[in-house]
Design a protein around this nucleic acid. Structure first.
Lengths: 125, 125
DNA sequence: CTTGCATACCTTGTAGCTCTAGGTATAAAT
DNA sequence: ATTTATACCTAGAGCTACAAGGTATGCAAG
């Protein structure tokens, strides 16, 4: 699925923070984790992830360190979440909830109105 | 509540489309409707709404016409949703669903992990 | 009649974002 | 020696939010 740019922007930060909050991980794996979490619907490129990781580190919600992977022997840049990061994530969860509630409310009303006009073509006087 | 800019951008289009899909309305009222729908949490400025309405009209998902209000006698620019608009709204609903599912999944796992480490400080070997 | 207020619309400019399209480098497998 | 998967990075075009400004009208109070 090709997300709108706006939705991409809004969801990328909470998704990344949530994934890293589960435990230290690195860029390449995050891309695949997102694909898995979305059931294949979300296909991130690394070109959009790395600038995001750098920005989040700059903001102090993530911190990184280079480490040699024990399994492959390759160098990777592992990211962990900071205290500020957890606080930020919590705030974003709440914001998401507010929007989601509002959207569900309006979409529910749309459906109700549709059903009314389906089953009752004319309004009572 | 002060939404992040990104979430603002992502939610404004589906909210506006949803509101207008219920029936023709105009800018000033949309701002108040959003406040009502969000239980006061969302406070849009008209300065961000009007450019959005113009953009959506340009894209062909909305159409507008000036009309004199029967109640106040003032001129207002009423917006209605087009067929393309309904299609777009439907797509955005689906996209929103995908993101929401992924976020809930990761957030649920975070909670589960938290509870595990609360009630069971050491992992089984 | 004029002052103030709510209604109702619009634009400019800055700052910040995504995402495409490139790039480098290494380990393992063929 | 070549390919594939892994793993990281950046430049720049194009787009957007939003604050801060502006115009205009109907109505009520004094």
């Amino acid at each position: 699925m090709n997300l709108s740019k706006d939705l991409m922007a809004a969801s990328s930060t909470p998704l990344v923070l949530g994934i890293i909050a589960e435990g230290e991980t690195y860029g390449y794996e995050i891309v695949k984790r997102v694909e898995q979490l979305s059931g294949g619907a979300l296909n991130w490129t690394d070109g959009m992830l790395y600038p995001l990781l750098h920005r989040l580190e700059q903001q102090g919600v993530l911190e990184s360190r280079w480490r040699v992977a024990s399994d492959t022997g390759r160098k990777r840049k592992y990211y962990g979440i900071t205290e500020l990061g957890r606080k930020t994530l919590h705030e974003q969860q709440q914001q998401w909830q507010v929007i989601n509630d509002a959207l569900n409310r309006i979409w529910h009303e749309m459906t109700v109105n549709l059903q009314r006009s389906d089953t009752n073509g004319c309004q009572p006087a």
